[in-house]
Write a protein that binds this DNA or RNA. Structure first.
Lengths: 234, 234
DNA sequence: CCTTATTGTTTCTCTGTGAGACAATAATAA
DNA sequence: TTATTATTGTCTCACAGAGAAACAATAAGG
């Protein structure tokens, strides 16, 4: 596969996505590792010249997760001069066997538009892109060192997610169709990074009138079985 | 003055700023009118190749308002293909007497990063840029037709401002150093677009412990004089 | 049938807000 | 000087929502 051509993409503009998933009570994000470099980064990419910005992000996420319908929110455009380091980009490309021309476009200054995505962890089929040999889930507080300002991007995305937690119905995007109140509470706790009072949370969620109650979930444990809930479709 | 050269600026990326001011009880924004076109637009500009994004926005606002220290918040990156219309840009340039080359960079597709700014209306000295013959204040609900998607940018900026109203201490940036509780309430009402209960507002503001109370303001009206307040510096 | 762990609900308290009442007061009119 | 008027600062009462804890229901195991 040849090096991507400048003529196909908008120069100086990249996107980086913070893909949140939830499993085993922990909030996690997707991180890629580039071939033979030990460098970790957020899944990102470039915008084609005839492509809407949002579509570019969706395309990148589809290629890596197999998901077509993804909940997306824009976070911030990072545009400091020093956020980008062409030496690192060159190292990544060369580690993949490319010989990089002197003024190759991917070594220029880059702005990055950050998005966060919320996905149901179970529905994902991970696939590394051509430059990387792994893509995987990392707990939010156990991330490896990330290139450029990607750590800052993660922090800003998490902050934005927290601010949106009450305004937008976020829980549903990180859980399967049906879930228990306890699971929903765990999602909120993982996002906020703190414990929530069980009874208050249940009362509030039920009073919002956004949940449908379904059959009970019998887990085999020796105690009362919890109800399953789903978010109302309308 | 020659046409701006492509080599000095980041291609495909512009910024547009929604500059909020407050006077006579109304929320207003700055709008420019381009020479001999009848076209109105938000004050915007381009990012120099060796310039931080935030600095570019500050530079543009300084040139038009004379203010160095401006409260800025990023709003959104607008990146749909169809948001930009090269014909309009060509018309603006030609109305200014330029002959525009075939593939001139300013006719390319543009992304626009939107910011809002909050300024003290009294401190501003307005100055149109070279392409426009006027820059002035317009009430938020009496804007002229704006080019491209600038109306949408205004709406999004206002929405973001509302969401930030409680989190960030916004009132102080739109008022002089000292102000009455009534003036502060008017700012909140103008931003929210609805009346607020006087007593609740006063009680809440005072309980937040963010205001210093100063001397009374004697307006000459025949009623009790209100106190002046300022935001605490720390 | 009793125990255990967890869930769903209820109760009590405290805080903050909506709504309105009331007192204070700066200038004007009598 | 005194009464009037408009607006401000404060207080009171009612109500809604959240924190904290108690209590009842119940699925499985012993």
């Amino acid at each position: 596969m040849p090096l991507p051509e400048s003529s196909h993409y908008i120069p100086h503009l990249a996107y980086d996505s913070v893909v949140f998933g939830f499993s085993k009570g922990k909030l996690k994000i997707l991180v890629m590792e580039y071939h033979d470099t030990g460098l970790f980064a957020l899944p990102g990419g470039f915008v084609r010249k005839n492509e809407n910005l949002d579509d570019a992000v969706k395309r990148g996420l589809f290629e890596r997760t197999g998901l077509k319908e993804i909940y997306l929110e824009q976070v911030h455009l990072f545009g400091d001069i020093n956020r980008f380091d062409p030496a690192i980009m060159k190292r990544i490309l060369e580690a993949n066997g490319y010989s990089v021309p002197e003024n190759y476009w991917m070594l220029d200054r880059f702005f990055s538009i950050a998005y966060y995505a919320l996905i149901d962890w179970e529905k994902v089929t991970l696939k590394p892109d051509t430059l990387s040999d792994s893509i995987g889930w990392y707990e939010i507080d156990q991330l490896p060192d990330l290139i450029f300002d990607h750590k800052e991007i993660v922090n800003k995305a998490l902050l934005t997610l927290r601010e949106n937690l009450d305004k937008k119905l976020i829980g549903g995007n990180l859980l399967p169709e049906k879930f228990t109140m306890n699971e929903l509470q765990s999602v909120y706790e993982a996002i906020l990074g703190q414990k929530i009072r069980r009874t208050s949370f249940q009362r509030k969620m039920l009073s919002l009138d956004i949940l449908d109650r379904h059959e009970k979930l019998f887990t085999g444990k020796s105690h009362k079985a919890p109800y399953l809930y789903s978010f109302k479709s309308t």
